[in-house]
Every structure is written in C-alpha cells, then in structure tokens.
C-alpha cells in the first residue's frame, strides 16, 4: 500500500519543533497583554445590534391587535417544531387570527426562519436574550409574553426591510 505523503514536507527547523514552539509561546504571551474583551455581564449589559437574533416575538400594532393571521408558516418552517399556532375567526377585516400562539423556548434555536418566512412581518427576532426558566411550563411563551408593541421592534423591522 502506497503511503500518502504530504505535498510539502516539514523543513529541518520545523521538524525540531523548538522554533515553532517558541513562536506559539510568544503569540500567547503577546495576547496576555492585549486588552480584554470580557463584559461584566449582570452589571454591564450587552445591547445587541439590529442584526441580532434574540427571542422571537409577535408584532403588536398600535391599536393593540397582532399582525399575525395564524397562517402557520412559521410553525411549518420551524426546524425544531417550537411554534404552535391555533387559528380562529374574528370580525376584523383580516378574518383570521391566532387564538393560541405558543413558542416553546426550550425547543427554539433562534434560527430566525420564522421571521424570514412570515408573509405579514408579524413575527420578528427581538433583542431579548435573557431567558431562564426553572420548569418546562415556564418555557412555553404564549401570546401574553410574545406580543410586543411595534415601536420597540422598529430597529429590527427596518433592518429586515433593508437586508431581507
């Protein structure tokens, strides 16, 4: 069996390791004196840019009605099946609305496909990244937690209109 040789063999200097090791050591040493990037989290908070994909939320119009028409596309596209939508009829002009809209934050992977597929710009990724629960039930976010006024999401919506 023919041995597979690498195209470029190591030079003598590389073979005796030591110069390479010194190079590696000097790199880490240099880094020890460089400025640190750590953010002292609970005191200092990260304010994400518009491109950040935090917790998905439902857009609430100024009149307090959700944009969502419960088409179920987000639910269909969701790779981890985090979204459950149950539609019902309303008297509004848009005759369909979600009577139940639930995102299981234990399943959500923050991929943003729901936002991308939404034909109504009704579900967008917010900047909220502080998610902690102590039981499975708390991780089910219903409409009460998901509905967010459109004012707070303008940043993300502008971003989507420019780049989506």
């Amino acid at each position: 069996m023919a041995l597979k040789r690498r195209e470029k063999d190591l030079t003598f200097l590389e073979k005796i390791y030591i110069p390479e090791i010194v190079k590696g050591l000097s790199l880490t040493l240099k880094n020890m004196f460089k400025p640190k990037f750590t953010m002292q989290y609970p005191e200092e908070k990260f304010i994400p840019p518009a491109s950040y994909r935090g917790r998905p939320v439902l857009v609430m119009e100024e009149n307090g009605v959700e944009r969502c028409v419960a088409c179920g596309l987000c639910s269909r596209v969701c790779p981890p099946l985090a979204i459950e939508v149950q539609a019902a009829e309303t008297e509004n002009e848009k005759e369909r609305y979600p009577v139940k809209f639930e995102i299981n934050m234990l399943r959500c992977i923050f991929c943003g496909l729901c936002e991308e597929v939404c034909p109504e710009e009704a579900i967008v990724m917010s900047k909220d990244y502080e998610l902690a629960f102590t039981n499975r039930k708390d991780a089910l976010y219903g409409k009460d937690k998901l509905l967010t006024p459109v004012m707070q999401l303008q940043d993300r919506i502008d971003f989507l209109r420019n780049y989506k």
Partner: peptide, 8 residues
C-alpha cells in the same frame, strides 16, 4: 374553517 392548516 380555520381549524388547522391542511399540511398539519
């Protein structure tokens, strides 16, 4: 009417 999407 509006009970479910057919693909579900």
């Amino acid at each position: 009417r509006f009970k479910a999407r057919v693909w579900e």
